[in-house]
Simulated assay, not measured.
Amino acid sequence: MAGIDAEVLAQLPVAEVSKVAFYKRDEITTDLICCDVVVGEKVWTFHEKLPGWGALIDHLQTLPSFDANWFASVSQPPFASSETVAFAR
């Protein structure tokens, strides 16, 4: 995937998203924040270095009861496995 654009976001309709989970991958010197979005039977995987990451987060924050504190939950402690479910139906 080259980036997250309007076409990608259109395939993630808020009414059909069943789960959003954030986690990080240890990349030796840094952590890479990732996100899995479940829509129907498909899991979409994104990461923070993709162009359009901010647009994705803005889109997901419109989900009812979305955990706006997901970043604090997933980012600490550094270089340790952590996952948080920011939304689930």
Rank of each mutant, 00 (worst) to 15 (best):
D31Q: 04
K49E: 11
I4H: 04
A2Q: 15
P13A: 07
L9K: 09
T45H: 12
V8P: 05
C35Y: 05
E41R: 13
L12I: 01
T84C: 13
A15T: 14
G40D: 03
A55W: 00
S18K: 09
E48A: 10
C35D: 04
F79S: 01
Y23C: 05
S73L: 13
F79G: 00
T84S: 09
E27R: 13
D31W: 06
S82Y: 08
E7V: 12
L50V: 09
A6W: 00
E41F: 10
A15K: 15
G3T: 06
V39G: 07
D5P: 05
R89F: 03
Q76F: 10
S73A: 15
V17P: 03
Q11N: 14
V17S: 03
S18I: 02
E41A: 13
V8I: 15
V74Y: 06
A72S: 13
V74F: 09
V37P: 03
I4R: 07
E27M: 14
L32A: 08
Q11P: 00
T29D: 11
T30L: 12
Q61F: 04
D31R: 05
P13R: 01
K24V: 02
C35Q: 05
E41K: 14
I33F: 10
L32F: 07
A6M: 01
P64N: 03
C35W: 02
A2F: 14
L12A: 08
S82C: 13
R89K: 12
A15G: 10
E16C: 07
I4W: 08
S73G: 10
V38A: 11
F46G: 04
E48Y: 04
R89V: 07
A55Q: 12
V17K: 01
V38P: 01
G52F: 05
P51C: 06
A15H: 13
V20K: 01
E27F: 12
G40C: 09
K24Y: 07
A86E: 05
N69S: 15
Q11M: 12
N69I: 05
V43T: 15
F46R: 02
F87K: 00
R25S: 12
K42V: 14
H59T: 00
A68G: 11
F66C: 04
M1W: 10
P77A: 01
A88Y: 06
G52E: 05
F87H: 06
V85L: 08
I28D: 10
D36L: 01
N69W: 01
F79K: 09
G54E: 15
H59E: 05
C34N: 05
F71I: 08
A15W: 11
I33L: 12
G40Q: 04
S81F: 07
K49D: 12
V43M: 10
W70M: 01
A2G: 14
